[in-house]
Design a protein around this nucleic acid. Sequence first.
DNA 1: GGGTATATTGAAAGTCACTTTCAACTAGCG
DNA 2: CGCTAGTTGAAAGTGACTTTCAATATACCC
Lengths: 143, 143
Amino acid sequence: MKQEKKKIFQEYAAARGLKSTRQRDIILDSFLSTDRHLSIEELYLQLREKHPGIGYATVYRTLKLFAESGIAREIHFGDGQTRYEHQAEGEHHDHLVCTRCGAIVEFENEAIEKLQDEIAAGYGFLIKNHKLELYGLCAKCRK
Amino acid sequence: MKQEKKKIFQEYAAARGLKSTRQRDIILDSFLSTDRHLSIEELYLQLREKHPGIGYATVYRTLKLFAESGIAREIHFGDGQTRYEHQAEGEHHDHLVCTRCGAIVEFENEAIEKLQDEIAAGYGFLIKNHKLELYGLCAKCRK
DNA sequence: GGGTATATTGAAAGTCACTTTCAACTAGCG
DNA sequence: CGCTAGTTGAAAGTGACTTTCAATATACCC
């Protein structure tokens, strides 16, 4: 899985004439090794611990490349930061976000997707993608 | 409807010890007179035409007050701008957004809301609110 | 391997969309 | 009216990216 995404990115890079660099490899490994929904800043800080030389701009640019290549996806939860999550071909999921502790749970629901398509069709829309986020308290924070 | 929201805001202002000012009245009227999903900037520019003296900061602060009072709601469509839409007590709707022309259609769907609650319950979450946005091409842009 | 044309990098400067500050104004009350 | 606390507008400040640019690294070609 991890190797597969690595390969997808490398192929994308090759096709675009991009070079393989030490920094990109480090960031790619780091990104693929965590399955949290990291913001650029979080990934940057995490990277700095092992690799002090890497700059914020590089992390930012590289994450963007990941998104373009299809192995990552940008997400916004309204906290003002851009986060990146792993993304696989044709896969999609939505989020449950705990507004107290920030916990994020992913879920998929075909029935909802189907209803969405029906609604869109009713208005003549052709849906390209959607965003569904449920905000509230997770089991732990409800206590 | 418009008068009702005006009243709600005035009561909210009174309860908070806020003063009634010329600027706030103008912004309130302007906001209530349009039913588009205006960004702060759009409302500001629209206002400036009739009332050149009003500053951006005032529009920004006033819109925030509207949201606090419950007559408006902030929305984010990922274009980097904060928009405000009218909001009525206990009412909720979601959006269809055309990614080409920016058209926005509002819709409500109880079946989806119900499914959302079920999903949340399954993860032990207590949902406070949610956001559902469908992005694609509107009937006109599909041609 | 050395020489080159390109792509990358990191630091710093620049953007954008708010947010806050502050001195000069009002409202509203007595 | 005279005060006191809330408001305003211009400008400075923030936060989170984005872009610029001179210095480096890579990937090729010989």
